[in-house]
Write a protein that binds this DNA or RNA. Structure first.
Length: 819
RNA sequence: GCCGAAGUGGUGGAACUGGCAGACACGCUAUCUUGAGGGGGUAGUGCCCGAAAGGGCGUGGGGGUUCGAGUCCCCCCUUCGGCACCA
């Protein structure tokens, strides 16, 4: 009789549902465990990446629940976003209908996998009950000065017809549609994530259970840089040019000052004779995207005709504008020190500017230099600082600048404020009214939510459909009651995902974004799982938002997730699965063929959860075969286990007990700490192999019955997080009632797990020459005596002198011989 | 250029703090079972020499530390990922 996964899984799932098995409740006093997978974008179909992500979470959640912890394991939908709107433009369906239909079908797929979600807590970010709180947070942040409007050069995706945040631009292209991003000057709403740059950086230190990869990527992205601001006076003109430098010690080597072409001072600096050239250069730069500019490494620039005065030396140096100075970074202006900065070196070579060595690491000579020297050394030709160590000089010079009022020590960050305005429909309306007399006025809290109107035209003409919905746009100013215009931009959907983990704690709360008591019970997240592609997007916003909520007094912690795992990508035959390659593996087809349990087991067995995984169908076959073996084994043995009351003291039965308890130890450790789920499964397979061997010599003595019953029960319990359907079925066959999701989890006895004999390897001069079996914990003397009398070892030591002996208890012996 | 991860049989991968490299599985070979479109059992399976016993070589390459290195240190190569004219 072989196992029929389709029929069994359907029957078991039906039972789970009837029992309302997965509902979570706050239980003060019971330790909680919040296991969260990044929620799902309702694109239409789930893929193997989802299967992997959610299966990992399900196994961990089930394990913790079996151990008696109170587990929260919810799922929801990140339901706003562009694809829904694009479908509407193509005339397929209203975004809401499209989204709801996709959610319905994807939810069905998730349920088929047997995932232990508490669907009563499901959230959909496109519902007013959810997004109204985005608006509420926005207003709170606006009042704190953390949300502000500004005219900025922003990333514009022409295909998506919307602005993108810096985090959403990849190599100059839109993260979603990959078309080239343009720069556009626009009025935009920003969140002051820059104010949190230092804390976001410092607090990374506390995230010891986050992958070092993600921590490094965030550190990189935040891009802290220590240096100084220095002001160069404009020679004969008004004002100062403020530059940022990390090498103030090299300032006597500055031979020009370079501004970004967009720098606001350029207009005033350009002399009449240089104006045409300056204007032409600026025009050429304007038509180039930042990315194009960055990838053309050639140093181009023009002289403005103006000169600036080095505040340290009093020297006049020419002012240039050039392509390699970026308006977005630092002050948009630099001092150029060709001898000690590679870019400056190249620029000086291209424009015939002098190169002056001012930091001498020893033997550095301008005439033979082929590249800049960034090395430390002693200052030369540096006025009163000559002869000083350059590190020392940095401090002294910054102090002097400060005292002289022309500079100070400074820290800059690469991280820029988060632009959240999107010129699209399917998102949270920004709750602001623009009044001619009162300016930008937040919608009063009592008037929330600002509902997203359903009935709007979808033209795809590059303007938010909201702007074409007069009933939405026309509003009254909350201050002066005069006619005013409602903001028609919507929020970046990454706002939605920045706090959703708190909403799960009390998803039906309608007076507040979340019930602080429930949130305080469940949050922060104990274990968070998702793709690494969010390392510098969602995972930064999510941390930032939590810090803001803490500062608003809404939560008592600043970090949202204690432990993070990024699951590896699922690929097929070495290539990423994609529609264009036609190599997509459909989870439904796999499930139909092998059952959900086998698909779950296979995807976890193939590699550690964080490694890239090349999907192989043959693996699912293997997994199905293994589950079949477990089924046959239990079904055959179950009727013969009655009366197994005697605890075995020796023989095969004791050995089986030992293997059982060893497996318990391994699997428990794996699931609670390392999460190398593939080796946990291997341990279960080994246990199953041992059981099969035991059964072939089974004589059904009371002791054997005891050992086999204990062992099979342990296997079924421990396999249950991976293959929950089969195991509930087998649990019943073993004479139990109830659901394994509720436990128990077997507890092992180290005394039984311990071997009483060990096989030690015997090396001679580091080479394996023999093996000896000894009682556990045998003395070094006894081990050595046995080792030396071992015939194979003897052959290698006879006639030689043993100069040294090493014994590692219960493991290995190494005899060092000479002659 | 900077930062991070990784490189182990035919394949996916094991090997916790240095201590028997290749667990577990896939695949393959032989063999058994008269179930013959995904069945099960047994044995074998890192490479080379050898009939065997046995021996040699083996964790990207080269050095080193150590009684002992996949694991630690130095140099190099390769692959993947992130950032990148960041001042």
């Amino acid at each position: 009789m072989t196992y029929d996964p389709q029929a069994t899984e359907a029957r078991i799932q039906e039972r789970w549902q009837r029992a309302g098995l997965f509902a979570a409740k706050e239980m003060p006093g019971v330790p909680k465990y919040y296991c969260l997978e990044m929620f799902m974008y309702p694109s239409g179909r789930i893929h193997m990446g989802h299967v992997r992500n959610y299966t990992i979470g399900d196994v961990v959640a089930r394990f913790h629940r079996m151990r008696g912890e109170n587990v929260l394991h919810p799922m929801g939908f990140d339901a706003f976003g562009l694809p829904a709107e694009n479908a509407a433009i193509k005339g397929q369906a209203h975004p809401k209908e499209w989204t709801d239909a996709n959610i319905a079908s994807m939810k069905r797929q998730l349920e088929r996998l047997g995932l232990m979600y508490d669907w009563d807590r499901e959230i959909r970010t496109c519902e007013p009950e959810y997004y109204r709180w985005n608006q509420w947070f926005f207003i709170k942040m606006m009042k704190r000065g953390l949300a502000y409007k500004a005219k900025r050069r922003v990333n514009w995706c022409p295909d998506c017809a919307t602005v993108l945040a810096n985090e959403q631009v990849e190599e100059g292209s839109c993260w979603r549609c990959h078309s080239a991003v343009e720069l556009k000057e626009m009025e935009q709403w920003f969140f002051r994530i820059g104010d949190y740059a230092q804390e976001l950086l410092d607090s990374l230190e506390t995230l010891s259970e986050w992958p070092s990869e993600v921590v490094a990527m965030q550190r990189n992205w935040i891009g802290r840089s220590e240096g100084a601001f220095v002001s160069f006076a404009v020679d004969g003109g008004p004002g100062n040019i403020r530059v940022f430098t990390t090498r103030i010690d090299t300032i006597y080597g500055a031979t020009c000052v370079v501004l970004a072409p967009e720098h606001p001072l350029v207009e005033a600096l350009a002399t009449p004779d240089r104006r045409d050239e300056v204007d032409a250069f600026r025009a050429a730069m304007r038509s180039q995207s930042t990315h194009d500019r960055a990838t053309s490494k050639e140093k181009k620039g023009v002289f403005t005709g103006a000169f600036a005065v080095n505040p340290f030396s009093g020297e006049k140096v020419p002012v240039y504008i050039a392509n390699f100075v970026l308006i977005e970074y630092g002050t948009g202006a630099i001092m150029s020190v060709p001898a000690h900065d590679q870019r400056d070196f190249e620029f000086a070579r291209a424009h015939g500017l002098p190169i002056r060595v001012v930091v001498q690491p020893g033997g550095l000579d301008v005439s033979s230099m082929t590249e800049a020297s960034p090395l430390d050394g002693v200052l030369q030709e540096s006025g009163p600082f000559t002869g000083m160590d350059n590190q020392e000089a940095m401090k002294e010079m910054a102090a002097k600048a400060k005292a002289g009022g022309f500079g100070e020590q400074a820290v800059t960050f690469r991280l820029k404020d988060w632009g959240i305005s999107r010129q699209r429909y399917w998102g949270t309306p920004i709750p602001v009214i623009n009044c001619e007399t009162c300016g930008t006025v937040p919608v009063p809290e009592g008037d929330l939510p600002v509902l997203l109107p359903y009935d709007v035209p979808f033209t795809g003409l590059g303007e938010s459909p909201l702007a074409r919905a007069p009933r939405f746009v026309n509003a009254k100013c909350p201050k002066c009651q005069k006619a005013a215009r409602r903001e028609t931009d919507t929020m970046d959907t990454f706002v939605d995902s920045s706090w959703y983990f708190l909403r799960y704690a009390s998803p039906k709360e309608d007076k507040r974004p979340f019930d602080p008591e429930a949130a305080g019970y469940w949050a922060p997240v104990d274990f968070y799982i998702g793709g690494i592609e969010h390392a510098t997007m969602h995972l930064i916003y999510f941390r930032f938002f939590t810090m803001v909520l803490r500062d608003l007094g809404l939560v008592p912690f600043g970090e949202p997730a204690k432990r993070l795992m990024c699951q590896g990508m699922v690929i097929k035959d070495g290539a990423k699965m994609s529609k264009s390659l036609g190599n997509i593996v459909d989870p439904d087809a796999m499930i139909e063929r092998y059952g959900a349990d086998a698909v779950r087991l296979n995807i976890l067995f193939l590699s550690p959860p964080w490694d890239q995984l090349d999907w192989k169908e043959s693996g699912a076959e293997g997994a199905a075969r293994f589950l079949n073996r477990v089924y046959d084994l239990v079904e055959e043995a179950a009727p013969k286990l009655e009366g197994g009351t005697d605890v075995p003291q020796d023989g095969e039965a004791l050995l089986l007990r030992r293997k059982t308890h060893q497996a318990m130890e391994r699997v428990t450790t794996e699931l609670s700490r390392r999460l190398k789920l593939n080796t946990a499964i291997a341990a279960l397979m080994e246990l199953c192999n041992a059981q099969q061997a035991f059964v072939s010599g089974f004589r059904a003595t009371p002791r054997e019955r005891f050992a086999l019953k204990e062992s099979l029960e342990a296997l079924v319990m421990m396999l249950s997080p991976f293959a929950p359907h089969l195991c509930d079925e087998l649990w019943e066959k073993l004479g139990h009632e109830g659901f394994l999701a509720k436990g128990p989890w077997p507890s092992f006895d180290p005394g039984i797990a311990r071997e009483d004999e060990v096989t030690l390897a015997v090396q001679v001069n580091g080479k394996l020459r023999g093996q000896v079996t000894m009682p556990l914990g045998a003395s070094d003397e006894a081990v050595l005596a046995t080792a030396k009398s071992n015939p194979k070892v003897k052959a290698h030591i006879d006639g030689k002198v043993i100069v040294k002996e090493f014994v590692v208890k219960d493991r290995i012996v190494n005899l060092v011989v000479k002659g």
